[in-house]
């Protein structure tokens, strides 16, 4: 069994060995720092920036989409309220028109009824007049027949008229 470091046991510092290690470590570190690591670091950082950028872009797009959908919703609500208003207006109009029509029709009807009443009254009056005349005539004729020229026509006429007037008064 051969310890290289037997003089100091486990805790001795071996210069030759240390030089070997220092040289290999320097060479290795230089290779790692100059050639091996930078491309890997760049690749990983590139990937990370790409991921971060795409995440940010996605967030922006999401915000945009949200804004758009909010706008759409707003427009929809506006349209709805407009439609509601229009419908209400239309209903009001219809109501108004209907009321007007109804009122007009009522008026017309009343007018017609009044006209009819007036006509009826007139007819009645004229009928009454005619009837009166007829009655008078009949009375005169019958009286003439009865009296047979005892009286002149004029005096009889006057008599009958008075009588009829009395009749109507009573």
């Amino acid at each position: 069994m051969l310890y290289l470091l037997a003089s100091g046991g486990l805790l001795s510092f071996n210069t030759g060995f240390a030089i070997w290690i220092a040289i290999s470590l320097v060479v290795f570190l230089l290779i790692m720092m100059k050639f091996a690591m930078p491309p890997i670091m760049q690749a990983l950082e590139g990937r990370e920036t790409k991921i971060r950028e795409s995440l940010e872009a996605a967030e922006v797009a999401l915000a945009k989409a949200e804004a758009i959908s909010k706008d759409n919703e707003k427009a929809l609500r506006e349209a709805e309220s407009k439609a509601h208003q229009i419908r209400k207006e239309a209903m009001d109009d219809a109501e108004r028109i209907r009321n007007e029509r109804v009122a007009k029709a009522k008026d017309e009807a009343e007018q017609i009824i009044e006209q009819a009443k007036a006509d009826i009254e007139q007819e009645k009056q004229s009928a009454l007049v005619t009837l009166r005349k007829e009655v008078a005539n009949l009375a005169i004729q019958s009286a003439t027949m009865i009296l047979d020229a005892e009286l002149d026509v004029e005096k009889n006429q006057k008599l009958v008229d008075n009588y009829i007037n009395d009749l109507t008064k009573n």
């Binding site: 051969l2 310890y3 290289l4 030759g16 060995f17 070997w20 290690i21």
Partner: peptide, 20 residues
């Protein structure tokens, strides 16, 4: 267990070792 020159003395032992 230490390798020493018969005459003179060792300056630096550059031997390859298991730890190296």
């Amino acid at each position: 267990h230490v390798i020493t020159p018969v005459t003179g003395h060792m300056v630096i032992d550059f031997s390859l070792t298991s730890h190296l």
